[in-house]
């Protein structure tokens, strides 16, 4: 099991709380780091002072973010060699086809729509956690 943290990029504190709760309920032990907006996320992953950033087991990215939106975050992460190969799962409320297409075009590894029904949401979070933290094999740290 990969001990690296999960990076949750999400501005809605309700969703942050519910997501953390869902992971806990799924017995996911990885630390969940929360970035509240795009700029915050980029600073953590690609620090401006050149120090090595956070290397999460998976990034859960919301699209509807203030300041720098999810698509732009995705684009910048994929443009930088340090984060180019990190697994990124878009976790969003939107079911719009254009969001889906754009996310995959910018190199998202997966696209999951957050269900309104919390029980379904729990199921989705559990599956996601199990898959990315337990099953998926990442590249070794540089």
């Amino acid at each position: 099991m990969n001990e690296d943290p999960v990076l949750l990029i999400e501005d809605n504190p309700d969703d942050v709380l519910l997501t953390k709760r869902a992971f806990a309920k799924a017995n996911l032990v990885n630390e969940v780091i929360v970035a509240e907006d795009g700029a915050d996320a980029l600073e953590r992953l690609l620090p401006a002072d050149g120090t090595p950033g956070v290397v999460p087991v998976v990034i859960l990215l919301d699209l509807n973010l203030p300041i720098i939106d999810g698509h732009e975050v995705l684009r910048r992460l994929r443009a930088d060699p340090r984060t180019r190969l990190l697994p990124i799962v878009v976790l969003t409320t939107s079911a719009e086809e254009r969001d889906l297409v754009e996310a995959y075009e910018h190199g998202a590894n997966s696209y999951v729509r957050k269900p309104v029904d919390f029980i379904e949401f729990l199921e989705a979070a559990k599956t996601l956690g199990l898959y990315w933290a337990l099953l998926n094999r990442c590249l070794p740290h540089p």
Binding site: D15, R21, A95, K114, F118
Partner: peptide, 18 residues
């Protein structure tokens, strides 16, 4: 609508369940 109207609903449903 697709984004912003649904997020509160998820909160209502989610915290209700909690």
């Amino acid at each position: 609508v697709s984004h912003d109207l649904r997020a509160p609903l998820r909160a209502i449903d989610g915290f209700g369940q909690l």
